[in-house]
Simulated scan of single mutants.
Amino acid sequence: MNTDLETLRGLAHLARLEFDPAHEEQMLTDLNKILDWVAQLEQVNTDGVAPLVHLSQEVNVLRDDKAHNTVTHQEGLRNAPRKDSDYFRVPKVLD
């Protein structure tokens, strides 16, 4: 399968890419090589081959999530530069 410069320019427009004319020929050559490689892959007989779902048979063993407070409310406010009883005080950001 081969493409021409007009097809390359159309694809570049759709992908919002810009090629200078000096590099269009190189891009066209590379695109044709990619399409030839894909055509070769289409010729491979995959009958009886199970689809690959995971790259390895390894299974992640994760711990159960348990919600608990590690820092008390007072400890969280202890190092705050400005606080107001139970809350952090921050500069106003909206008018």
Rank of each mutant, 00 (worst) to 15 (best):
W37M: 07
L55K: 08
Q74K: 10
P21T: 11
P91H: 03
S85V: 05
E25L: 09
K92I: 02
R89K: 10
T46W: 05
V71N: 02
L28N: 06
A39D: 15
H73E: 08
T7Y: 02
D64V: 10
Q74F: 01
D4R: 04
F19K: 04
H73W: 12
K33C: 13
P81M: 02
F88I: 14
Q43T: 15
E6R: 04
K92G: 00
L55P: 00
A39T: 15
N32C: 11
R16I: 03
T72G: 15
L35W: 07
A39I: 08
K83E: 06
K66N: 08
E75L: 04
G48Q: 01
A39H: 14
D65S: 06
V44I: 14
Q74G: 00
M1N: 01
A67Y: 10
Q26V: 14
D20S: 11
E58V: 04
V93G: 00
Q26T: 15
D84C: 03
D20Y: 08
S56Y: 12
K33T: 15
Q43C: 04
D86E: 09
A39C: 05
D65N: 04
K33N: 14
T72L: 06
N60Y: 14
L31E: 06
Y87G: 00
I34E: 06
N69V: 06
L31F: 14
D84Y: 07
L5K: 09
V61P: 00
M27I: 07
E24T: 04
V90Y: 03
N45W: 02
K92A: 03
N2G: 01
D95E: 10
N32T: 09
E42M: 06
L41S: 06
K66T: 11
E58I: 10
T3Y: 12
A67N: 07
E18T: 11
Y87C: 04
H68E: 09
F19Y: 14
D20Q: 09
D84L: 14
M1E: 02
Y87W: 11
A15V: 00
Q26C: 05
A22V: 12
D36V: 04
T3P: 00
N69W: 12
W37R: 11
L8S: 10
R78S: 10
V90K: 05
D47I: 04
H23G: 02
Q40E: 14
P21Y: 03
N2D: 09
S56L: 10
E24A: 08
R63H: 13
L52K: 13
D86P: 00
G10C: 01
